[in-house]
Amino acid sequence: MVLRPHLPDLLAALPLPTLAVDRAERIVAMNAPAQALLGRGALDRHYINVLRQPAVVDAVEQCQQDDTPREAQYLASDNGNDTTFRVHVRKVTGMDYVLLSFQDITQVTNASQMRRDFVANVSHELRTPLTAMMGFIETLRGPARDDAPARDRFLGIMTGEAERMNRLVGDLLSLSRVESDERVRPTDKVDLRYVLQSTMRNLNPLAVEANVTLVATMGDDPLPLMGDTDQLLQVFTNLIENGIKYGGVGKDVEISVETTLRDPSLRGPAVRVTIRDHGPGIDPVHLPRLTERFYRADSHRSRALGGTGLGLAIVKHILNRHRGRLKITSDLGDGARFTVILPMDVA
């Protein structure tokens, strides 16, 4: 009991939200982070009325009974965002206090959930073509063994499913690479005009096959910036290819370039590249989630056109590495506009 006058000072020195509960089950001290989490009115109140969550209340009660440290989870909400804390409950040796410290593990919890979702999504994406191929193999070994037209048709479908799995694995590897490099700033000077011209040249056969015209407005001046040529080619290949696939047969895909000495998004010199198609457009409700892994505005159409649901996620991570931005706007019936904003090198 000698240290009680110094208890608030001791808690104030701790960085984590921390409070002390005495033998009378009242909160007798708490530091500023704990007050921000639980409210200033928590002091001198019964801990059950403040914490209110059974797992934490049980941990405190049991710790008071047997002096054994406990852990529990505490869920809070901050401006509408759920926050998860790991609460460490420990009896102070030689004193009749139980200390509760709150460790924010929201990021760890979210990362774990993302991993689970990612594994579930990958498993789902692979299971469909694998199930189809196994069914066709069984049919080819049985009823369709001597049916040449059916055999050729099934082999064609199996080839398509195998190509789909191959694209998915390729995109997963690509996503893994760009995520690992995301915090490493590019150091090479790149002419974005060359990147765009190369991308259009590579995709021209696909555009011709789809009866789509690529219309570029980019001027003759170089567009210098610090970047990774291969990754920027991947960004614009993905976006222009999407425009060709989803823009509709016989429609134009427009690529326009605009430079500015001060872009409001980057607060400095920037180049904006807008890829616009004239297809059916995207319902605005889907726009905020388009860069999420495996998210598709139209899953059936995307799969039919060979999409893996990872392309825009890859684009987002590459642009993050380049300190760039991606803005997507669309109205149903009026096509979609994907604008890439990249900082220019004007030195």
Score class of each variant (00 low, 15 high):
3 L>I: 06
8 P>A: 08
11 L>S: 01
12 A>P: 02
12 A>H: 09
13 A>F: 00
19 L>G: 00
21 V>E: 01
24 A>E: 09
30 M>Q: 06
34 A>R: 00
36 A>C: 14
39 G>Y: 02
40 R>H: 14
43 L>F: 05
44 D>A: 10
45 R>N: 06
46 H>C: 12
48 I>S: 07
50 V>Y: 00
51 L>K: 00
51 L>A: 03
52 R>L: 07
56 V>C: 15
57 V>Q: 06
59 A>E: 00
60 V>I: 13
61 E>W: 09
63 C>M: 04
63 C>F: 03
68 T>S: 13
69 P>C: 12
72 A>V: 04
72 A>E: 02
73 Q>A: 14
80 G>T: 03
81 N>S: 12
82 D>S: 09
82 D>W: 03
83 T>S: 15
85 F>L: 04
87 V>D: 02
90 R>E: 10
96 D>V: 07
100 L>F: 03
100 L>I: 01
102 F>M: 02
104 D>P: 04
105 I>R: 08
107 Q>E: 10
113 Q>H: 12
118 F>H: 15
118 F>P: 01
120 A>W: 07
132 A>C: 09
136 F>Y: 11
137 I>A: 15
141 R>Q: 11
142 G>F: 01
143 P>T: 14
152 D>H: 15
153 R>F: 06
153 R>M: 10
156 G>I: 04
157 I>A: 15
158 M>A: 10
158 M>W: 00
160 G>E: 06
160 G>N: 11
161 E>F: 07
161 E>I: 05
163 E>F: 04
167 R>I: 02
167 R>K: 10
168 L>V: 05
170 G>I: 00
174 S>M: 11
177 R>M: 05
180 S>V: 09
180 S>F: 06
180 S>P: 02
181 D>E: 13
183 R>Q: 13
185 R>W: 04
185 R>E: 09
186 P>G: 11
199 T>D: 06
207 A>H: 02
207 A>C: 06
211 N>A: 14
214 L>I: 05
216 A>K: 06
216 A>G: 08
218 M>F: 05
219 G>T: 07
219 G>L: 09
219 G>C: 07
221 D>A: 14
221 D>L: 13
222 P>H: 11
223 L>Q: 05
223 L>V: 08
224 P>E: 05
224 P>R: 11
230 D>L: 07
233 L>C: 07
234 Q>T: 08
240 I>T: 09
243 G>W: 00
244 I>L: 04
248 G>K: 07
249 V>M: 12
250 G>F: 09
251 K>G: 02
253 V>E: 00
258 E>Y: 09
259 T>C: 10
259 T>K: 13
261 L>R: 10
262 R>E: 04
265 S>Y: 03
265 S>D: 07
266 L>Y: 00
268 G>F: 03
276 R>I: 00
280 P>Y: 06
286 H>T: 06
290 L>S: 09
294 F>E: 03
299 S>G: 10
299 S>L: 07
308 T>I: 01
308 T>D: 02
308 T>V: 03
310 L>Y: 01
311 G>W: 01
318 I>L: 10
323 R>S: 15
323 R>W: 05
325 R>S: 12
325 R>T: 13
325 R>Q: 15
326 L>M: 12
327 K>T: 06
331 D>K: 15
334 D>A: 15
336 A>T: 15
339 T>R: 10
342 L>K: 02
342 L>P: 01
347 A>R: 13
